[in-house]
Lab assay of single mutants.
Amino acid sequence: EPLWIRPDAPSRCTWQLGRPASESPHHHTAPAKSPKILPDILKKIGDTPMVRINKIGKKFGLKCELLAKCEFFNAGGSVKDRISLRMIEDAERDGTLKPGDTIIEPTSGNTGIGLALAAAVRGYRCIIVMPEKMSSEKVDVLRALGAEIVRTPTNARFDSPESHVGVAWRLKNEIPNSHILDQYRNASNPLAHYDTTADEILQQCDGKLDMLVASVGTGGTITGIARKLKEKCPGCRIIGVDPEGSILAEPEELNQTEQTTYEVEGIGYDFIPTVLDRTVVDKWFKSNDEEAFTFARMLIAQEGLLCGGSAGSTVAVAVKAAQELQEGQRCVVILPDSVRNYMTKFLSDRWMLQKGFLKEEDLTEKKPWWWHLRVQELGLSAPLTVLPTITCGHTIEILREKGFDQAPVVDEAGVILGMVTLGNMLSSLLAGKVQPSDQVGKVIYKQFKQIRLTDTLGRLSHILEMDHFALVVHEQIQYHSTGKSSQRQMVFGVVTAIDLLNFVAAQERDQK
C-alpha cells in the first residue's frame, strides 16, 4: 500500500453525458421521505430548503428570480454533511469501515464536522487534520463531537509532509485500522450531490432553472449537481466560483495573481482535486475576500440567511453572472454553511477592521482624538531585521541585547519573508524542534498583521487588541530589464502597544 495517494490523481470516472444510468458502476440512493420521529440526527441530513432572495437581486438590477439552496440546514450545519454520511455509508457497505475503526480526514473543517457527527452516532474514533487558518468555532464544535484535532501550517503546499493532507496520511500509516475516506478522491463525494442535492433542486424548481452558481473546494458539490442538471435540464448554465489565490478556475489566465492566501474558508485549493470535473462548468468567476464577507453580511442583514463567507462569494458572483438572465428565468445559488463557524471572524466588526474589510468610518461609535491620525505620526525608528541564514542562537542574543521581542526576517534585497519572535524561538528550542545552530528560517511564521503608514491609529489599535505587534510595510514598484514591473513589500518598522501608548501619553502631556 502506498504511503500516500495524491489528492489530485487523474480521475478514473467514466461518467458521460447521455450515458444510461443503468451502466453506472456505483451504488445510487434515492431521496427517502422522513418519518415524523427521526431514529437519529443523521436522518436530518439532506432535504434542505430552497429560499427566495428578495432584496439583493433587485438591489443589483437582476431581472431573474434568485433562489438560495440553504445547505446550513443540514444536521452539522453545512453541505459537507451529505458527503460525510455518504462516504461512511459506502465504506461500511463495501466492508472497508468496521466497528471500532478510526476515521482520519484532512479538511478545512466542515467535512470534519460532518464526519465527527456521523462518527459520534456510529461509534468510530475520528481524527481531523486541518490548517491553522480555520476558525476556532470549527475546532470547538469538533472537540465537542469527540474528534481529535491536529493543526497544520496554512501556507504548507498540499504535497508537503507538513500539509493537512501529508499529516493525515502519516497518521494513517501509524494508526492500525485507520482510514482516510479522502473527500478529494472519493466518488461518494460527487455521488452524494448527484443522487440527492441535484434531485432536490430539480424537484423544488419543478425542473425549471436557467443558471446554477456554486463555490468550489473539493469540487464534489458542483460536479455532482452539474452532471445531473446537464442530464435533466441541459439549458442550465453552470457557474463556478473560485477565490483569488486558488488555481481551480479555467482558463488558467484567471488564476494569475501574486496573491497566495485568502481568508474565506472551505473553497479554493492549490491543486485540482480528483473529484472535480471542470468540463461540466460553463464559466468560472474569481471572487475576493472583501466581496465575500460584504455579501455574507448582506445576506444575514437583508435576507435573514445566517450563512458563512463562501455563501457571500457565491452570491457576489451570482449578481454578476445572472445579469444575462431575463424576467421569468431563474438562478439558484448554493449557500454551503452557517455563520456559526465564523462568529469571531467576519461577523465581528473588530475582525473586519483588522483585516481591512471594514473602515473605521463605517462604525458610528465615538472615537478618541488620536483615532484618525496616521501611523506615520508615530515617528517610528528604523527596524531591526535579520536574514533567514542567521542562526536561532545568534538571533536570540541580538533580540535580548537590543531589547526586542520580535524581528522581521528579510532577504538580501529587503523583501519581507516573515517574522521571528523570542517566545516562538525559545519554545521551539525547548520542544526540540530546532537547535541553536539551525537557521532562523526554520522558525519563520507568517501569521502576523501588516499595516501601512497611511493607515489610521484606530486601525492599529484594533490590531493591537488581539496581537502583540504589527509590521509596518510599504510597497515598492521595481522595474526589470524586460520592461515588466513587480510590486514588493518592504519593512518600514515594527509597532507595539507600548509605542502607541507612549505616543498618546506624550501628545497629551505636551497639550497640557
Rank of each mutant, 00 (worst) to 15 (best):
L426H: 13
V420G: 13
D510W: 13
S287Y: 02
Y262R: 02
I267R: 02
E324Y: 15
V332P: 02
T260A: 07
V280L: 14
L254G: 02
F346M: 07
L305G: 02
L384N: 12
F271S: 04
V332Y: 02
W371Q: 14
G483N: 02
T421L: 12
Q450Y: 02
E265W: 02
G414T: 12
T421A: 13
F404A: 08
T391F: 12
H468K: 10
L429V: 11
K446T: 15
V333Q: 02
Q450L: 11
E365S: 11
F404G: 02
Q326L: 02
T391Q: 02
Q326T: 10
I396M: 15
T456E: 15
M343S: 02
P251T: 12
K442D: 13
H474S: 10
G309Y: 14
L378D: 04
L464Y: 08
M419A: 12
R278V: 02
K367A: 12
A321F: 06
I334C: 06
T364C: 08
M352E: 02
V473P: 08
T257I: 08
S381Q: 09
R488V: 14
L254K: 02
M425V: 13
V491A: 13
G441L: 12
E475S: 02
G423M: 07
R297M: 04
L422E: 15
Q302C: 12
T454E: 10
D282T: 11
H468I: 14
K355S: 07
I396L: 12
E265R: 02
L457N: 07
K442A: 11
V440I: 12
L384S: 14
I390A: 02
S348M: 09
T395A: 12
E327M: 02
T260S: 11
R509M: 13
Q487K: 13
V409K: 02
M419H: 04
P251D: 02
V420S: 13
E290F: 06
Q487S: 11
R297S: 07
Q478M: 09
V420R: 02
G458L: 02
A311Y: 15
A321H: 13
A505D: 14
L387N: 09
E252Y: 10
I463K: 15
T260P: 02
N255C: 07
V333L: 14
G458V: 10
D438V: 12
L417K: 02
D438L: 12
T395F: 05
R488T: 10
A316R: 14
E263F: 07
P251F: 02
G418A: 10
V495A: 14
V333I: 14
A497R: 14
Y445I: 12
S485Q: 08
Q329D: 06
V420C: 15
W369P: 14
K367F: 13
D270Q: 06
I398V: 08
G418E: 05
Y262I: 02
G308H: 02
F357N: 06
T344D: 02
K449T: 02
Q302K: 02
F448R: 07
D270P: 02
T421M: 14
V281H: 07
G403E: 08
T389F: 15
E465M: 02
M298K: 14
E303I: 02
V504N: 15
L430M: 09
F295A: 02
G309T: 09
V280S: 12
H468F: 10
I416T: 10
D362L: 10
L430W: 09
C331L: 10
V473M: 13
T344M: 05
E263V: 06
A321M: 09
H468A: 06
F346A: 02
T261S: 15
I239V: 04
K484M: 14
F285W: 02
I477R: 10
D411V: 09
Q376T: 10
E290A: 05
L335A: 06
L306S: 04
A322R: 08
R452A: 11
E263T: 06
I444G: 11
G266Y: 04
V315I: 08
Q302M: 12
V332L: 14
K283R: 06
I390R: 02
S485V: 02
G309W: 02
H462P: 07
L276K: 10
V339Y: 07
S287G: 10
G423V: 04
G483M: 11
R340T: 05
K366E: 11
S486P: 04
L373T: 02
E401L: 02
T257F: 09
G356L: 05
V443S: 15
I390Y: 14
M490V: 14
S428M: 06
I390G: 13
G393A: 13
V319Q: 02
